[in-house]
Simulated assay, not measured.
Amino acid sequence: MKAGSSRQAKRDSDIASMHSLVKLLREVESAPGLFLEDPSLRSALRSQGALAKHGIPDRSIVAMSLTHQRLIASLSVGFDELDRRRRAALKAIDREVSVRQKHGASRRKKGLEMKIGELEAHLMTLKLDLALLQRAFDIRSHQARHYASLAGADIIALCKKEQRELDATFSLRRTAIDHENVVPFRPGRKP
């Protein structure tokens, strides 16, 4: 008896989740600009399977398999209605993006904030790449010194000299260069 009642409670919960999902899709369709900053939702709207797997706990929307979503939708709102709402919401978001691109949303405060967010994310990626490259460079330098130490005094001296030159090059990239002190190449001279 308990298994049947827990199954019914789960089904009721899934049906409530389906109604919340349809309500969200209506909101997206009527005010797509409010949802532009949620790329995971936009991505989930691209297919019914992705939407089924997209859970939003704040809105009591539970992730489920596409087969289960199809069953629950058929018991409540209808699967065709759910898919129609999904496509309409995606179309509304795509239309809003197109309008903003056409009218230069980047000049508005919200558009500028979005652009700053994108640039900050790009900067963080570049910093992570730089850290990885620096670590790889440090490991290679350590290996070069180690192998040179096995070779002899002349090779060790040459290795230290070349390593100092490389270190100077890398430290130069970390500091700002005063461009007034940079002398241009003379015409006809190759770098």
Score class of each variant (00 low, 15 high):
L132S: 12
G188E: 12
A44N: 01
I15C: 07
L158Y: 12
R189W: 08
L172E: 04
R7W: 08
E162M: 11
P184K: 02
H68L: 11
D129F: 00
L71A: 15
L21G: 07
S5G: 01
L75W: 12
L36V: 12
L158T: 07
S20L: 08
R87C: 06
L158P: 05
I56L: 07
D38F: 01
Q143W: 00
A88N: 07
R95V: 15
L123T: 13
R174S: 03
K190D: 07
V28F: 04
G49T: 07
H54C: 06
H103G: 08
R189C: 10
R85Y: 09
A50R: 08
L36D: 12
P191L: 06
A151N: 02
R85N: 12
L112E: 07
A50W: 09
F185M: 15
A9E: 03
S6L: 03
V22W: 12
P184Q: 01
A148L: 01
E180S: 14
A50F: 06
M1T: 14
L90M: 08
E27W: 11
G55I: 02
K91D: 10
L172M: 12
A151S: 10
V62Q: 12
R173N: 00
F170K: 07
P184V: 02
I93R: 01
A176E: 08
H142R: 00
D138L: 02
E27M: 08
L172Q: 06
A3R: 13
